[in-house]
Design a protein around this nucleic acid. Sequence first.
DNA 1: CTGAAAGCGCTTACAG
DNA 2: CTGAAAGCGCTTACAG
Lengths: 344, 344
Amino acid sequence: MSTRRGSPTIVDVAREAGVSIKTVSRVLNHEPGVHESTRDQVLKVVEALRYRPKQSARSLAGGRSFLIGLLYYDPSAIFVGSVQQGATVRCRELGYHLVVESLHNDAPDLRQQIDRMVLALRPDGMILTPPLCDNPEVLAALRESGTPCVLMSPERDIRGVPSVRMDDVHAAEEITNLLISLGHRRIAFIKGPADQSASAARYEGFVNALRAHDIQPDPELVQPGAFTFASGRDAAHQLLSRRQRPTAVFASNDDMALGVLAAAQRLGLSVPGELSVAGFDDSPTAALVWPPLTTVRQPVAEMARTAVEMLVQGHRAEASAVDEAELHKVLPHELVVRDSTRAR
Amino acid sequence: MSTRRGSPTIVDVAREAGVSIKTVSRVLNHEPGVHESTRDQVLKVVEALRYRPKQSARSLAGGRSFLIGLLYYDPSAIFVGSVQQGATVRCRELGYHLVVESLHNDAPDLRQQIDRMVLALRPDGMILTPPLCDNPEVLAALRESGTPCVLMSPERDIRGVPSVRMDDVHAAEEITNLLISLGHRRIAFIKGPADQSASAARYEGFVNALRAHDIQPDPELVQPGAFTFASGRDAAHQLLSRRQRPTAVFASNDDMALGVLAAAQRLGLSVPGELSVAGFDDSPTAALVWPPLTTVRQPVAEMARTAVEMLVQGHRAEASAVDEAELHKVLPHELVVRDSTRAR
DNA sequence: CTGAAAGCGCTTACAG
DNA sequence: CTGAAAGCGCTTACAG
């Protein structure tokens, strides 16, 4: 009986395997320079004892916590869900754990909350989601503490700070191209709020596509919006009461597109028969409404997986000359064509 | 200069404050028996040095990790979001951190994944959400490891295992009462899948309310469903083509209620003019559809807060004679009356 | 009310 | 290819 009480420690494994604890440590950390037979013997004992090294001991002695932090402030619930799905799975594969913290973007004690996480837990890296990844106070606190970060979909990239994002301009261009290929020429666009960079990017993509097809952008067909259901509904009411109605509306996010759907229904306009509608985000609701919404799926889970990888690898690479281009990754999105768009 | 390199340790604080590290430890852990002036002096130095005790060292020495684990398997994204919101905030207030792990309910290596979390991290407690909280394998693994757990909305309570839930029967009763008070008598009900206990509970509440008002439950007005949009839509098609239509439909979750809305629209029936519709869950979509859905809000964030508290307090109380009734908490829900229901 | 000593379970240099 | 020693930064008994 080697395990008298509690769970086995590295000492139990070493004794049982007839080696020193240092050798057990080498095997567990995949360090080179261990004879294969020794390695096998150790692994056998590890298995038999169901031994797992204790994170707190490894962390204290080795300076790595095997913890990745995720900071978020209530972005749409679905966003958090996908981020976590991607992040926890990749963390597990790499032997890490994910610690989450929900912060208020303008909490008075934001700095203290971050300090608490960083100083007490010492995570090996931190993932920041919007809008926290654009908060100067948050970024400063993290930089001071020397905690490696990856920004997910930040407003704009920061030199030297890793980030992952998708290409909003290109995606908006693709969705506009789809509408054009369906024969639409009078295509309306509902913008997002001016203070979010995605708004400008999506609008840019929309205009690019029109121009590429020699379609003159009509200012009358561009309405402001706020990325909310109500703003989409109101914008649609404006657009659909124009003397010459658009045949398609590209709402630059799904919540607004749902508003457009509601407005069309209110006005007795059939979608997609009399009006095509496209959104952006692929929110869970997008597939549930009637008709199901054509939209763009953001690679959220993949971005989270990538963020974890960058953090873990970055730790290995230990700084040094990292190419700036390598620091800012752009992941492919996916056009989701459903029933809300149709050829005219 | 006391901090030559890296962040300050308890030794730095002790030296600076002119006391032993044991005294610093006492102050930080709110242990009694420290002179007030000594305490103040220590706290001043702690503040000045921005000192935070390192979790790994506390954990290794003290046997408490200050980590709470959250295990989930893709319940609706909104559910996870709310659980986390509630849990992380309460953890922060109590000096804990939340580690999340997304598991597959029927992964072949489920046991290993749990072991990894429990043995490596040694969380002080674990929160389980459906359907993991009903998975015997998960429960067994956790019991063996001696990790305290709280089950969130389990199918049924287990003696000796703490749980938090809402009262589905009562909530369904209330929503049915609302419909009855609006003058409805022919009220249809769409059931959930038979393998979920919430299905039976909600149906029970529905029947209770009818009986209390001397309304004979009509088998023709009860349709099976699967808690999905499509099943709700199909059930509604059945119900609304009956020779004598119901004047109200109570779908036992929101996704199905959205299906009912779609079906009604398809059939040219105005809601709530010709048909009242009620759901259950208060999903984010419920407020966005047209008309906004009358439903029941589950106190998800509050349940998570409570779960954290039970875990942290349980650790203090150190087992002993805990009242079984105290172990299973029922939190109040909230009726959300919106526009999809109207007096007939 | 306060402190000196031991120890938690690992990893990091450093030897051989 | 393998190991003995020191130490990470705290808390737990144990003294006084």
